[in-house]
Design a protein around this nucleic acid. Structure first.
Length: 310
DNA sequence: AAAGCTGGCAACCGCTGGACG
DNA sequence: TCGTCCAGCGGTTGCCAGCTT
């Protein structure tokens, strides 16, 4: 269990016995209380003064990953999963940068999700998880399913979010790496009208500002949107206003123009078009993205098509 | 029922870069 | 400019609950 070790870099005056391993309730209480009184930061000082026999690093980690009030617990939502996949394809293992776009989620949590869930699929496919091939599998199989899952849920906030995510889920990979059957025009998601989205955005903002009983999930989604919005704005280059951007319904990435009116998140045609490979909608949607998320036979088929294409 | 195995997650470790003297 | 300290980051480890045999 938790062990005690001599401080490796102990000062001469106090050779403190440092605790390691799982935190106890008493330690948590002590840390929370200290931060409530003195605030975060200066972790080494905090560690010394709070009476905790922990390193400053350990205190910081415990606070940021577990004790901080806005840390969200529980499973990642499909929206969050989709965002992680998308942002990872853009930034790689920049966990803390990715975490900044998922309010309440820590870099540690995202990193664990990636290693335990996503990389597991890569292992099953015998693909290097950092390879372009695996990124393509994520984009062509996993993300459309997450989007479909999001659309399957009926709450307005998730509709808003899913549409934002559709924007965030713009193609990042070079189209030349797609199977030859897929043209850039086919490799897009289509969405419902962007005016609708704008309407939802405004309504949500209104709810947020006027309703004292706004749920934490709604609140999260709204703040989430605010943060996510940086992403498409960044992508659109010269547009100054997100809403204007949405109304305009068009943005440009990597010299490829995307017409929002042609996005199709329902993705049935999309997935059918990938490598001419039909993907059944069987079990993934009912399994909370568990192990049966992937149809392995079809993924193998896709993988082989990819290999032939290169 | 018990032993072994596996996956998920909390925590630790080592490195890096910025701030400051 | 150099050295030291510190916070933060990403990689890795190890514990443990749940599952399988």
């Amino acid at each position: 269990m938790s062990s005690v070790s001599k401080s490796a870099s102990s000062s001469s005056d106090e050779d403190v016995e440092l605790r390691r391993g799982p935190w106890t309730l008493e330690e948590d209480t002590l840390l929370i209380h200290y931060i409530a009184c003195h605030g975060e930061g200066r972790w080494n000082l905090l560690a010394k003064r709070s009476g905790l026999k922990r390193t400053g690093k350990s205190c910081r980690l415990r606070w940021l990953n577990y004790l901080k009030p806005d840390v969200k617990r529980g499973n990642l939502t499909p929206e969050e999963q989709l965002l992680i996949l998308e942002l990872h394809s853009k930034w790689g293992n920049r966990w803390s940068k990715i975490a900044q776009h998922l309010p309440g989620r820590t870099d540690n949590e995202i990193k664990n999700y990636w290693r335990t869930r996503v990389q597991k699929q890569a292992r099953h496919l015998k693909i290097d998880p950092n390879s372009a091939a695996f990124q393509e599998v994520i984009r062509c199989f996993w993300m459309p399913r997450l989007i479909q899952k999001i659309r399957g849920s009926s709450s307005p906030s998730s509709v808003i979010l899913s549409q934002n995510l559709a924007i965030a889920s713009r193609p990042l990979i070079n189209h030349s790496s797609l199977p030859p059957q897929v043209s850039p025009q086919e490799n897009v998601y289509t969405s419902e009208t962007t005016n609708n989205l704008d309407h939802h955005v405004k309504n949500s903002s209104l709810e947020h500002s006027t309703s004292p009983s706004v749920s934490s999930s709604e609140s999260m989604n709204i703040s989430h949107m605010t943060q996510v919005s940086e992403y498409p704005i960044e992508a659109m280059g010269n547009s100054h206003d997100y809403n204007t951007f949405l109304k305009g319904g068009c943005y440009n990435v990597d010299n490829i123009s995307y017409d929002m009116e042609t996005f199709n998140i329902s993705s049935v045609e999309f997935e059918n078009s990938i490598g001419g490979c039909h993907v059944s909608q069987s079990n993934w949607i009912d399994n909370e993205f568990g192990d049966s998320f992937w149809n392995m036979d079809e993924l193998w088929q896709f993988k082989q098509l990819q290999e032939r294409g290169t």
